[in-house]
Each structure stands twice: as structure tokens, then as C-alpha cells.
Amino acid sequence: MPGTPFRLRSRATDAFTKAGTGGTVMSTILAAGISDAEILGRLREVLHETFEIAPARVTPSAHLFTDLELDSIDAVDLAIQVQEMTGMRIKPEDFKNVRTVGDVIATVHALLGR
């Protein structure tokens, strides 16, 4: 969706774009009800493309550091990816306590709820 900072796509957001909105805005995405499963799907893509992690390993309970073997620099890269996905600036405290993929999903929801 050109011109849209949020890159999580769903049939609902595609429908809004096709309806002639000319690009979805954050409130439209919130109205579309982006689900945990859709965020998880996008995270699987990002982690596979960026860190070559098999998508099947990326589950909500997967620990970023022990299960997915990310290090602190990888965590910074992941935070940047989340920032690009949401179009929202991430403050260090937003990502400070993130330990699992489920925590990342919750952080995306928190960012979109601002």
C-alpha cells in the first residue's frame, strides 16, 4: 500500500484501500481490527527475511534471545522493523521489556493504540 506507513496487510485493509481511501490511515487500520495472527504473520516474514529464522519457529511463546537466538543488536534491528511496520516511533521503554514474540505483538498493539 504505497504511502501507508503500516505494512501489516489484511483483507480488511486491502478492502479499505480498494474502496478509494487513497491509502489507509492509522485509525482505519485500528478499525480494521488487525489481529494477533496477522501481526504474527508479518513478524514471521520479518524475522525470516532479516535473520533467516524459519517461520515455524516464530510462535508467540518463542523467546527472542534463547529460542530464536537473537542478540542485543538483533533486538535493535527488530525494534526498527517494528517501527517501520507501524509507522510509529518506538521509545526505548516501549521495547525494554520485550522478551518473547508475544511481547512484540503486544507492543505493536500498544503502538497502534496511541
Rank of each mutant, 00 (worst) to 15 (best):
I29G: 00
I80S: 14
P92E: 05
A106L: 08
D103K: 03
T13L: 09
Q83I: 12
A31C: 15
E49H: 15
L78Y: 01
A12S: 11
I53G: 04
I90S: 09
F6H: 00
I73D: 11
Q83V: 08
D67Q: 10
P5T: 05
A75R: 01
I105V: 08
I39C: 05
L30M: 11
E45G: 08
L47T: 01
L111Q: 01
R89L: 11
V76S: 02
A37N: 03
T4A: 15
T13V: 11
N97I: 01
R42A: 14
S61T: 13
A15T: 12
P2A: 13
R11K: 07
L70T: 02
A12G: 07
L64H: 01
G33T: 10
L30W: 08
T28N: 14
T107S: 07
T24P: 01
D14L: 12
D94H: 15
G33N: 03
I29R: 15
H109G: 09
A19F: 10
L112S: 12
A110T: 13
Q81P: 08
I73S: 15
R7S: 09
G3D: 03
I39Y: 11
T107Y: 07
V101G: 00
F95G: 11
V101T: 05
A19V: 04
K18E: 15
T59S: 02
T17H: 14
T13C: 10
G22A: 07
E49L: 08
V46A: 04
D103T: 03
T4Q: 04
V46R: 01
I105P: 01
K91I: 09
A31S: 14
T59A: 04
T24M: 13
E45C: 07
I80D: 12
V82H: 00
I73E: 08
G22K: 02
L111F: 12
D103F: 04
H48Q: 14
N97V: 12
R44E: 04
A31N: 12
M1H: 06
I80G: 09
L64F: 10
A12Y: 07
A54H: 12
R42G: 06
I34V: 04
R114P: 03
K91P: 05
V104H: 02
T59V: 03
V101R: 00
V101N: 03
T86V: 11
K91S: 13
S27D: 14
A79S: 06
E38G: 03
L112E: 03
R7G: 01
F95E: 01
F95P: 05
G33S: 02
V25P: 06
P5L: 03
P60Y: 07
I73H: 10
L68Q: 05
T13S: 06
G22R: 04
T86Q: 02
G3A: 06
G41Q: 09
D14Y: 07
L30N: 11
P5V: 08
V25D: 06
M85S: 01
T66I: 10
L47R: 10
A62C: 08
I53W: 07
D94Y: 09
F95K: 06
L40E: 02
L68G: 15
I90T: 04
F95Q: 05
I53D: 07
T50S: 09
E84N: 14
I29L: 13
V58E: 03
P60I: 02
M26D: 13
M1P: 13
R89Q: 14
R57T: 09
T86G: 00
L64P: 00
V104I: 04
E69W: 14
T50P: 11
E52M: 11
T100C: 05
I73W: 04
R11G: 02
Q83K: 13
L40V: 01
S35D: 12
S61G: 14
A31F: 08
